[in-house]
C-alpha cells in the first residue's frame, strides 16, 4: 500500500531524514516511534505530499506522490500534529468544506453525520471551532482525515492533548478503523504504540533504526537475557551449585538483598532455556526461592536502548537482522 524507498530530506545543512525505506502492506497498523525531533513528522509530511523529499520515492497504492499527487492524495487521510482547522468556522461547516475540497462522491449529509458520530463530535457540530477545547479540536481534525473514507490514514500524534478517557476512545477508534484501513500512527508514547500497532518503526535522528513487531524488537535486544533469582541460602555454596546446572553460562551474585537472601544473576548459554533446570536445582537443595524473574525488556527499555545507542552499538544490537531475512 505504501512504499518508501531511500527517502531523504535536507533542510539547508540539516539532514532531517536520511535514507529511510520501508513498505507497509494493506491493512497494517504501523507505529512510528521516536523522540521529539527525530523526523517522524517530516516523514509524514512527505508521505502526504505536504513537503517534498530531497531524494527517494514515495508511492501510495502504486501512485507516486510527486508524479501523480492527486490520485495518491485521494487515498490518504492526514491528521497533522497540529490539526489544520479554520477556527472561524463551525465544526460541521468545516467538515463540509473538507468534503468539497476532497471532492468526495458519497452522499454528503449521511457521510458527514457518520464521521461526526465516529469521532464523537456530533454534539458540538454547530459550535465554532475556536471555542472548542484541544481534545475536541483534535477530534475535528481526526474527523476531517476520515472524510471521504480514504484507504490510508496517517495520524501524527493523534492523542496528544486528550484526557485519558478520550485517549482510550481514540485508541479504540484506531483499532476499529484498522480493520479496513492502513494506518500509520506516530507517537512518542510507547504504551500507545504498543496498544494499537502490530508493527513498530523506530526513528531516531532521521534514520530508521528498527522495523519489527514489538515482541521481536524486545527479543532481539535481550540477547543478554538473564534470570534474576532471589534465594535464601549460603552465597558461596549456591554460586558453585548453580554453575553446574547445564546450560548456565555464568552466575553472579548481587549480594545480600534481604535478610538471609541473596540475589543471583544467571546467564544462560545462547538460546538455552534454563528456567526449569535452575528452579529444580534450587528446589532439590531444599532452599527457598523468594523471586525468580526473567528480564524481558519492556518496549520502553527497547526504545531507550535504541535511541541512546551510538551507530556502532546499533550495529551490534540489530546486526543479526540481515541474517534472519
Amino acid at each position: 500500500m505504501i512504499n518508501v524507498t531511500g527517502l531523504s530530506k535536507r533542510y539547508g545543512g540539516y539532514l532531517a531524514v536520511s535514507d529511510v525505506s520501508f513498505e507497509i502492506k494493506k491493512g497494517e497498523i504501523v507505529g512510528f516511534l521516536g523522540p521529539n525531533g527525530a523526523g517522524k513528522s517530516t516523514i509524514m509530511n512527505i508521505l502526504t505530499g505536504y513537503l517534498s523529499m530531497t531524494r527517494g520515492t514515495v508511492t501510495i497504492d502504486g501512485y507516486d506522490i510527486i508524479e501523480d499527487p492527486e490520485k495518491a492524495k485521494k487515498k490518504i487521510g492526514y491528521l497533522p500534529e497540529i490539526p489544520p482547522l479554520y477556527t472561524d468556522m463551525k465544526v460541521r461547516e468545516y467538515l463540509e468544506f473538507i468534503y468539497d475540497l476532497k471532492k468526495v462522491k458519497f452522499p454528503k449529509k449521511p457521510h458527514i453525520d457518520e464521521v461526526l458520530k465516529l469521532v464523537r463530535i456530533a454534539d458540538v457540530q454547530n459550535r465554532l471551532i475556536k471555542n472548542l477545547s484541544k481534545g475536541y479540536r483534535q477530534r475535528v481534525g481526526f474527523g476531517a482525515a476520515l472524510i471521504g473514507n480514504p484507504d490510508v490514514l496517517i495520524l501524527d500524534e493523534p492523542t496528544v492533548g486528550l484526557d485519558p478517557k478520550q485517549i482510550i476512545e481514540i485508541r479504540n477508534l484506531i483499532t476499529r478503523l484498522g480493520k479496513n484501513h492502513t494506518i500509520i500512527l506516530s507517537s512518542h508514547i510507547l504504551s500507545e504504540v504498543q496498544a494499537v500497532c502490530e508493527r513498530i518503526i523506530i526513528i531516531n535522528r532521521g534514520k530508521l533504526i528498527a522495523d519489527d513487531t514489538a515482541t521481536n524488537l524486545a527479543n532481539k535486544l535481550s540477547k543478554e537475557r538473564a534470570l534474576f533469582a532471589r534465594i535464601i541460602c549460603d552465597e558461596e555454596n549456591m554460586l558453585q551449585t548453580l554453575k553446574t546446572v547445564s546450560g548456565v553460562k555464568s552466575v553472579r551474585s548481587m549480594g545480600k538483598v534481604e535478610t538471609g537472601a541473596f540475589e543471583f544473576v544467571i546467564e544462560p548459554e545462547q538460546g538455552k532455556d534454563i528456567r526449569q533446570a535452575v528452579f529444580e536445582k534450587v528446589a532439590a537443595m531444599g532452599k527457598t526461592m523468594l523471586s525468580f524473574a526473567d528480564n524481558t525488556m519492556t518496549l520502553e527499555q527497547v526504545f531507550l536502548r535504541l535511541t541512546d545507542a551510538t551507530d556502532e552499538e546499533l550495529e551490534n544490537m540489530l546486526g543479526d537482522k540481515g541474517e534472519e531475512e
Binding site: 502526504t48 505530499g49 505536504y50 499527487p69 490518504i76 497533522p80
Partner: peptide, 10 residues
C-alpha cells in the same frame, strides 16, 4: 497551519 489541509487534499 491550515495550509496542511489544503496542500494534502487531492
Amino acid at each position: 497551519k491550515v495550509d496542511q489541509a489544503l496542500l494534502t487534499a487531492p
